[in-house]
Design a protein around this nucleic acid. Sequence first.
DNA 1: CCCCGAACGTTATACGTAACACCTCGGGCG
DNA 2: CGCCCGAGGTGTTACGTATAACGTTCGGGG
Lengths: 361, 361
Amino acid sequence: MTAEGGTPHGHGDPTTEPTTPAHRPTADRTTSRDVARAAGVSQATVSLVLGDKWRGRVSERTADSVRALARELGYRPNLAARNLRLGRTRTALLVVPALTNEFFARVHAGAAHAAAEHSVGVVLYPSPDGIGPARDPFDSARAAVDGIIASSMAANALATLRGGGLPLVMLDSDPLRSDAAATVNLDIADGMRRTAEHLLALGHRRFAHIAAGIDSWTFHVRAEALATAVHQAPDATLRTEPTALGVTEGRAAAERALSGPGPRPTALVCDDDLIAAGACKAARRLGLRVPDDLSITGFDDLSLATALEPELTTVRLPAAAVGEAGIRALIAVLDGRAPEPTELPGELVVRDSTAPPPADR
Amino acid sequence: MTAEGGTPHGHGDPTTEPTTPAHRPTADRTTSRDVARAAGVSQATVSLVLGDKWRGRVSERTADSVRALARELGYRPNLAARNLRLGRTRTALLVVPALTNEFFARVHAGAAHAAAEHSVGVVLYPSPDGIGPARDPFDSARAAVDGIIASSMAANALATLRGGGLPLVMLDSDPLRSDAAATVNLDIADGMRRTAEHLLALGHRRFAHIAAGIDSWTFHVRAEALATAVHQAPDATLRTEPTALGVTEGRAAAERALSGPGPRPTALVCDDDLIAAGACKAARRLGLRVPDDLSITGFDDLSLATALEPELTTVRLPAAAVGEAGIRALIAVLDGRAPEPTELPGELVVRDSTAPPPADR
DNA sequence: CCCCGAACGTTATACGTAACACCTCGGGCG
DNA sequence: CGCCCGAGGTGTTACGTATAACGTTCGGGG
């Protein structure tokens, strides 16, 4: 029990040399203590100087010398030790379905940008988009984090996320039934309504909704908003063709919608730009010209929208702003402030894939 | 020095209750010691059991009880503490230009996948694609990492990366002049050669290279390989039109190439699919049909390639495999094994944007 | 002459974990 | 009987950092 009487440790060699402590727990990097030794001060002083808390406690000369030596020795603070000591990491975990979806890549870019401005880090957990219980994000990310920002589309990871007891900011999820500490939403309904009104104003009355068949709030909102807006014109009809996400899938769904029974729709409203790209291919395959014979709209305004010919009329969503707002909200929560709930507007971008419907027979 | 005789600490209250140590360094999560107390064992035992090193040292009954309590109390190991103790983090830093480039999003996906299989994490440093000294990746990523995987296109961050003293795996960089611990390369030259041979076989002789004007190894290789392959046909001509990356930029460059002096090229070889998409738009704008009047090829095989009409003939690069190989190489280096240098092949995917040239006048 | 308060640092922890070196105890064996 | 052995643990330490609490010197005012 007493620590007196001989070193209880195995390699009780009182030389200053460490002599490789037999299991080498650390890569031999310079520590703040090394800098301290070199500067002839205590480790605490180094910590004060480098932490910029030295004013009035350390002389300017000493501070300068410490800084110089730190640079010279290539000192880099050990993040693990710092995080342990402080009990926080200044790091956020961003949970999204997949970055190959450009929308989420942009969300990440916005988050990374805003985070950098606050000296905060972002680590990513791309929730495997298949279903299944998903690996534990906390294990997979393997980085200690202070809070979580999660897209509602990463649904399969959400259950696990709850358990962590960490502050959670939800992106684009139902604000009513969310137990998150904060939410950042997109005004999806408004975007869809504007799309419908644009098409109605052009004279369209026969609509088909090529709808992402995904049980996610954002897509429910799209369907509902479209239906509501379309039916403001009493003679308008709307049929819905569900599809998985993706160009090929969208093409198949659009072909079904265009070759179904009854009069052919003159406008295809697609749940995202990839589906819209597929719809364009379907149109061409059926010998329909876009936009003369058929109008097509997308959603998201990915770079794809302007790469296509004709360029897509679509709703531009401020993806980067979503990421930024997510970071800001999380920081607010972590600082104990109440984050204002955010709702970001979309914007209808009219390009070349919409036009008045062909003259009816 | 002796621990006897009264607690030297300020709030010397010998109760077991911590009574909030005045600055609350840690969020009050369950620690392994809490689990130990609940199970009536020592913290060391908890560590053994949960670290799966208990066989032959702890009875099965005790181990079960510890595991049950850990789950019940919602115990999650403190990664910062673990990392500090072990001196490693089982985390890799992936440095890429930007994830909005689908190619790098796929690289990341591959890396994340391979990493997860080895219980390793990946954190991302998207090097701001502008030039400039870039923030310190180690600071920005804010996560302690064991090693780095960097794309050669994240050039502006590379200098800083060197300083860290961490193992570095380079992706798609010049293997000859690289001081990296390992390299993972794509056989870009082969892909470009196949493209040229495909076009030559179709009968093309007048080529234009819409070339990414970026000082990066991968693009130098493309230019060189294309020139070499094209000039195997003695009557072939090749002009080069540099461009920035992106659809709009590619369109402008293609327009220059098509409207320049001399006979018009019949084949446009583009350095990536985005540029190729721009080239398609340029062709349409000039009244040229693809592929009847003009053949166009891309590079990368992004999802864009099949979204376009006509679908692009392009070189499919195994982006995900690059990420996977990067992780594997890094793990090998960290384990002290010598990683075999990897060179991954591309594959020419012939689609609808290439055809024999129009009959010459 | 003495105490005081700046100025300038230092000492001592504590964070939570993993690994090592010890303990203890009952039984088998020579 | 004495001794060792293995099973089943415990005590202690160290990782590198940040900070609260505590010295120590020195010039000056009362």
